[in-house]
Design a binder for these strands. Structure first.
Lengths: 155, 155
DNA sequence: ATCTAGTCTATCTACTGGATAGACTATTAA
DNA sequence: TTAATAGTCTATCCAGTAGATAGACTAGAT
């Protein structure tokens, strides 16, 4: 089913990098592309979209580049994914941000599928809307520490 | 993002109908198609696939048709969706049933995105693998009752 | 035997995800 | 003020998939 597109995944990685370097000035597309192994031209489109959505800011000319428009704790993963992949809901009829009726549903009010899908939506938005870029970086730090405590004894 | 395809949605509706008529003999594709407003030829493919996966049984010839291979409480929504749409995981690198490494991930063990997506996967599989067809029908009954208790006073 | 109904293969169209090319424009440092 | 730099935008492109349809084939019931 694979709900997250490559686009969003690339975006998350690029934004994580920008969050790590928050307040250290603009970062070049070329640099992000190289460090995160993201096709440069594709990344351009992604960053542009994120800028239009108010998540990123940019600066042109020499010394320019992209930077977070807000603090890393003020940007949620849910917001990022919604910006690029649209609504988080598994089916249109349970979307909060882009509701659309199922044309063939005999009666939406008593549809069991819908109720279950609503639960799924609630569960995923709860996670993704709570989790900020800052939270995600914190997770990475913890994972890093954990790995260092459990070294792999191999040559 | 819309994780559930029409195929799965059609399947859920058809299976709900078959669950409602469990132990009442085979049901014709044509009848399922008509009652649930599902394109007949498309439904054929879906039912065939579900049969190959051991979720449905079929009987040929006059008086034939499709029927549930197991009891409605023994078939989970997760199983159905997996059969038609593949793994429930939002990204391949957190799938239990079809793990695939992210080719460009610098270090999967410390990937924050991955950890969050794991949480999302856990949350959705918890719901979908717990919920059986029987549970879903029960939900519909409850919704029905609820509606009858809150009548709409309109002409 | 023959009718009925499921099975299977092939095919089609439209759409979308992922990606690339290249011209254009704004900024800034020299 | 101009050359270099770096972001912006539009146009495409290709492959794969979703959704759907057609028709021949096969097994079973009566």
């Amino acid at each position: 089913m694979y709900a997250i597109s490559k686009k969003s995944k690339y975006a998350l990685r690029a934004l994580a990098e920008l969050a790590r370097r928050y307040n250290q000035g603009p970062v070049l597309i070329a640099e992000l592309s190289a460090r995160q192994h993201i096709p440069k031209k594709f990344l351009e489109l992604i960053l542009l979209e994120l800028r239009n959505q108010g998540i990123l800011g940019s600066k042109k000319g020499k010394g320019g580049g992209y930077f977070l428009a807000r603090t890393p704790s003020g940007i949620s993963l849910g917001e990022i994914i919604r910006a690029l992949d649209g609504p988080l809901a598994p089916v249109p009829c349970v979307s909060q941000t882009a509701y659309r009726t199922c044309e063939e549903c005999n009666d939406e009010a008593t549809c069991g599928i819908r109720e279950v899908m609503q639960d799924v939506r609630d569960a995923t938005t709860k996670i993704l809307d709570q989790e900020s870029l800052a939270d995600m970086l914190r997770r990475e730090e913890l994972l890093e520490q954990k790995r260092n405590r459990v070294p792999v004894y191999a040559i």
